[in-house]
Simulated scan of single mutants.
Amino acid sequence: MELQDLVDTFEFLDDWEDRYRLLIDMGRDLPDFPDEARTEANRVDGCTSNVWLITDVEETTPPRLHFRADSDAFIVKGLVAILLKAYSGRTPQEIMDTDIEGLFNQLGLGKQLTPNRRDGFFAMVKRIHGLAASHSDTPANA
């Protein structure tokens, strides 16, 4: 499912219970995450739930970053799936240029998520931006 398809699906589902079910299903569809990568170094700071994130770099010009992630919480795994759809396979500049806050608002997540989940979502974004910046000439907060 592409990002626009996701937005369209969320708009079609007018019941938040159905949207949460979709998030949980998206989280269940995440690829397996290696147990050996569940380390403190790969854990995302700022998330109440445990979230682990690793990056594989495709050495192209510019490089493309592929992310794998997992969480121990069902809804958070769905949020992880959204972020992977938005960012994985993109160049550092494409990552920095993605309007993730706009997507977050289009999906209506700001109105439905607890403040802790919202903060965790943006902690994951910050980590991804930092990883993108480490493979780019563009600073993370540009």
Rank of each mutant, 00 (worst) to 15 (best):
M1I: 10
E2H: 11
E2A: 09
Q4C: 08
D5A: 14
L6W: 04
L6P: 10
L6S: 05
V7G: 09
V7C: 08
D8S: 14
D8M: 11
T9A: 12
T9V: 10
F10E: 14
F10K: 10
F10A: 13
F10T: 10
D14G: 14
D14H: 13
D14F: 07
D15Y: 07
D15E: 07
D15W: 05
W16T: 02
W16S: 05
E17Q: 13
E17T: 14
D18M: 06
D18R: 09
R19N: 12
R21I: 10
L22S: 05
L23M: 15
I24V: 15
D25G: 07
D29T: 06
L30K: 05
D32I: 02
D32S: 13
D32W: 00
F33P: 08
P34E: 03
D35P: 15
D35T: 13
E36I: 08
E36P: 14
A37F: 00
N42L: 07
R43N: 09
R43V: 04
V44C: 04
D45S: 12
G46T: 06
G46E: 02
C47D: 09
N50S: 14
V51S: 07
V51Y: 00
W52H: 11
I54Y: 03
T55R: 11
E58M: 03
E58N: 06
E59R: 04
P62C: 05
P62S: 00
L65R: 04
R68H: 15
R68F: 05
D70A: 12
D72F: 09
A73W: 01
I75H: 02
K77M: 09
A81R: 02
L83S: 03
L84H: 00
K85P: 08
Y87W: 06
Y87E: 01
S88L: 08
S88P: 11
G89L: 01
R90I: 01
R90W: 02
T91S: 12
I95E: 02
I95R: 05
D97A: 15
D97H: 12
D99V: 02
I100D: 15
E101I: 03
F104P: 10
N105Q: 14
N105T: 14
L107S: 05
L107F: 04
G108F: 00
G110W: 06
K111L: 14
Q112H: 15
T114L: 08
T114G: 12
N116W: 06
R118W: 03
G120T: 05
G120Y: 05
F121V: 07
F121G: 04
F121M: 09
F122I: 03
F122H: 02
F122A: 11
F122T: 03
M124F: 02
M124V: 08
V125K: 06
V125C: 12
K126Y: 05
R127I: 00
I128N: 04
I128V: 10
G130M: 09
L131F: 07
L131A: 07
A133S: 09
A133K: 01
S134M: 09
H135N: 13
S136C: 09
S136Y: 03
S136A: 07
P139G: 06
A140L: 03
A140Q: 10
N141I: 04
A142F: 11
